[in-house]
């Protein structure tokens, strides 16, 4: 039902351009001359240059799992996120990019209600997870966060043993019936995070004693130990060296087979490498969303182009 081509897309109001060029077409669709039906249509559509409400590209996806509709976030009087609509597909990796302070982290933190912890934060609009409104009164944020896990910018293992770090989530949610089952969850999670080989002989040592990259993988293991449906990653590699970054990126690739992953990143290369779709935020607005290839080779919005080519940011 939610067909790619038939979806309505919000377009910058001021742009009186034929809708077909903005209707979420793939790269090929946009670039293919359509001389027969449209006459003298340009080979490459003009860039949208004006910054205004609405999103260019395609905010919808084939198999939506998390859907944000008209989300606004306020911190006190500051309007941090302005009317953002975005679908996050099942088992897809979507990257949120944009200059510092553009609201991508804020948007990410809306998805598991981490903004609840900030008292002045107010969220309007609706966000659904598998059809269920995550901001409804009946939904406990605790239950939500068990389904939508989060990995933070700075590796933040608990000052406990490696084992206890991974076992913490399953323990508080009562996911393991006995010690043997818990052992299995811990081992499996560490294995999936690619850390088991390095730490299997020292599970009782403190997690804070690991290197930065190992700590971040420990945090990922800790997140997947709860077996969430979506994993949010807030610049997970910004504190890591290129080798550790490469490991985490490989890991994301493997994890995307089972989880939807939303990643905030400042690295264009990283977004290009790991994500299937890219969403570009600017000053609280979602400017452009599309397939990664499309955005990086042929951005539709001038701001996106400026950002990915390094002119702003």
């Amino acid at each position: 039902m939610r067909m790619l081509q038939t979806r309505e897309v919000e377009v910058a109001d001021e742009q009186p351009v034929p809708s077909s060029e903005y209707a979420g077409g793939s790269l090929e669709a946009a670039n293919t001359p359509k001389g027969d039906s449209h006459g003298a249509a340009p080979r490459i559509p003009d860039r949208v240059t004006e910054f205004g409400p609405g999103t260019v590209g395609n905010v919808r996806c084939e198999n939506p799992f998390m859907v944000a509709e008209n989300v606004d976030v306020f911190y006190g009087d500051i309007h941090a996120i302005k009317n953002v609509t975005l679908e996050i597909g099942q088992k897809e990796v979507i990257a949120l990019i944009g200059p510092s302070g553009c609201g991508k982290s804020t948007f990410l933190r809306c998805l598991n209600r981490m903004n609840d912890t900030i008292e002045s934060a107010r969220v309007t609009g609706s966000i659904t997870l598998d059809g269920q409104d995550i901001y409804s009164k009946s939904l406990d944020p605790v239950a939500l966060r068990a389904r939508v896990g989060m990995v933070f910018q700075k590796p933040n293992p608990f000052p406990k043993s490696i084992y206890d770090n991974v076992a913490y989530g399953p323990r508080i949610h009562g996911l393991a019936a006995d010690r043997a089952e818990l052992d299995e969850i811990v081992h499996k999670s560490l294995d999936r995070a690619g850390l088991l080989k390095e730490v299997k002989d020292r599970l009782e040592e403190p997690g804070t004693g690991l290197s930065g990259g190992q700590q971040q993988r420990l945090c990922i293991a800790r997140t997947i130990a709860v077996n969430p449906e979506v994993i949010l990653m807030d610049e997970p590699c910004s504190a890591l060296d290129p080798i550790a970054t490469a490991r985490i990126e490989d890991l994301m690739d493997e994890l995307s087979a089972d989880y939807s992953i939303v990643i905030v990143t400042h690295s264009m290369q990283q977004a290009a490498r790991v994500s299937k779709r890219v969403a570009y935020f600017h000053l609280g607005q979602l400017v452009e969303v599309d397939e990664t290839d499309q955005v990086f080779t042929n951005p539709r919005h001038k701001l996106t182009e400026d950002y990915i080519t390094g002119r702003i940011g």
């Binding site: 239950a143 068990a146 896990g149 989060m150 000052p159 989530g169 800790r222």
Partner: peptide
């Protein structure tokens, strides 16, 4: 960051405080 880590895993505020 410790609080966020625990909250992000789905710990309740009580659990964050006491654990």
């Amino acid at each position: 960051s410790i609080r966020e880590a625990a909250l992000g895993l789905g710990a309740s505020r009580m659990q964050v405080v006491f654990h």
